[in-house]
Design a protein around this nucleic acid. Structure first.
Lengths: 114, 114
DNA sequence: GCGATTTCTCTATTATGTAGATAAACGCAG
DNA sequence: CTGCGTTTATCTACATAATAGAGAAATCGC
């Protein structure tokens, strides 16, 4: 996580996707979640790399058991957000909220300050 | 800016600091703003590198004229957030809000509460 | 010009973000 | 049990973002 206590923006999005998906959080739905909410597709590689990094930092955990899987294909890796992950999300949001506090996004044109 | 339309988290913070500071946005106050709101110090180098990147992308502009500077020392580089910068901030926030929508951040069930 | 002051630039390094190709594991039909 | 198609995961390589710290550059008052 960055020096400032705010995590990377893609890490945050992945973490949030995992959180939202709950029980069914694995690569494919995570990726779909990201696409739907951001409007662009990201590759599997991008998702896994991030998930692995988050796991390394203890922000997500791999859940060994899948809820009975009767589908073909290679077994899925399910993830869940850890307590630390929640805390990290909270810190990120808190700091960012402080940065945004009181700002309105109006296009600049005249200064005339104060 | 990232594939997803969300900019880097530090870039966002710097951009917000510049926006908030208005007329008086240059390295030192920007850095102070960052420290105060995040709780940690970042180096000048970090700030400048980011400012330069943002400038390269057209999200901030260097304002040539400083409001009369009678202080000693090397001349300051004042910055302002461009229209594009505002738009980028808005997009970043919009997408992130969609990612957060409806999520609450309750810690997952007790794990070894000893 | 000289020195003190303030700000900026440069170099290096690690962390994040990203894609695409390739491999692995599995259920099912034969 | 063997091969086959399906689904998911890993690997490699590279681009961008984040970061520190040392050192160089301007400017002012004298």
């Amino acid at each position: 996580m960055g020096k400032t206590g705010v995590m990377g923006s893609f890490e945050e999005m992945v973490l949030l996707a995992v959180l939202r998906l709950g029980e069914r959080a694995y690569s494919v739905p995570i990726r779909r979640e990201l696409s739907e909410r951001s409007g662009t597709d990201v590759s599997m590689g991008a998702v896994y790399a991030t998930l692995d990094r988050l796991e390394g930092k203890g922000l997500v955990e791999e859940r060994p058991e899948a809820p009975q899987q009767t589908t073909p294909g290679r077994p899925r890796r399910y993830f869940r957000v850890s307590g630390q992950g929640i805390a990290a999300l909270d810190e990120t949001r808190t700091i960012r909220d402080r940065m945004w506090r009181g700002l309105h996004l109006t296009a600049p044109d005249s200064e005339g300050g104060a």
